[in-house]
Amino acid sequence: MSTAKDVTDATFQSEVLDSDKTIMVDFWAEWCGPCRAVSPILDAIAAEHADKLSIVKLNVDDNPETAMKYGITSIPAMKVYRGGEVVKTVIGAKPKPALEADLAEFLA
C-alpha cells in the first residue's frame, strides 16, 4: 500500500492548487500495472525529499473531473504543481534514478 495521501475532485483545489508547497500528483488507477509498479518508488522519493516535494495520489476512476481537466490520457502520469500551475509532467513508470533525474529541479 502506498503511503501517499489521496486527493480527490473535491479536495484538489484546496490541497494541490491552493497549496504554498510544491506538490506532485500521481494520477493512477487500480487496473494499471505500471502504476502499481511505480507507486513504491514514489513513496521512496517522497520519504527521502519530504522537505522539498510532497507527493499525493489521485485515482482517475474515482475523480474523472480532475483527470479530464488536466488531459490525462496515459497513466501513470505525474504532474508537479506550484502556485496552482503545472510546472512539470512525467509520463510512464520509470526506475527510481530516471524519475529522480526528471524531478531533479524539485528535489535539489
Binding site: 494499471c32 500495472g33 476512476d61 483527470a67 488531459g71 490525462i72 496515459s74 502520469a77 509520463i91
Partner: peptide, 15 residues
C-alpha cells in the same frame, strides 16, 4: 507519447 500515442491499451484505453 502519453498524449494520445500509446503502447499499452490496457493502461490507457479507458481514457
Amino acid at each position: 507519447s502519453g498524449y494520445g500515442v500509446s503502447w499499452c491499451a490496457t493502461c490507457d484505453g479507458a481514457f
